[in-house]
Amino acid sequence: MQVELTVNGGSQRHDVEPRTLLVQFLREVVGLTGTKIGCDTSSCGACTVLVDGESVKSCTMLAAQADGSEVTTIEGLARGDDLHPVQASFHEEHALQCGFCTAGMVMATVSLLDEIPHPSERDVRLGLEGNLCRCTGYHNIVRAVLAAAEATR
């Protein structure tokens, strides 16, 4: 079937099987491998992208369901060499070690700060409950999210 969606501002029209998952579409058809497949069961959040501005787990959504939507992946955040404020604060606050969860964490954070621009620490911890990190113990991630919110105040 034909699926047409906007990925990071550009139109992507491809003929795919109906069972194609959005994450497969992004990684294998469009070729954007910044979005990771972690648990593949909608638990870990590594595959988080934005669909029409809201965070979703792209391993548990069909590309067909996103037909006509605007999708943003980690590759779509920076403007040239200028990191998105959330990317910059993850860098500054050392909010990653191995980095596997980071693309999903950053995308979930962008969505969270859109819904709650000035979150409390509790808001951040609850807001990122769908994203697992096995390295950091989360403290620096929470700091980075709060710093990103502060930077845009």
Partner: peptide, 9 residues
Amino acid sequence: VGDNQVRHR
């Protein structure tokens, strides 16, 4: 229910 991503869908 679930988490933010799940509640969005």
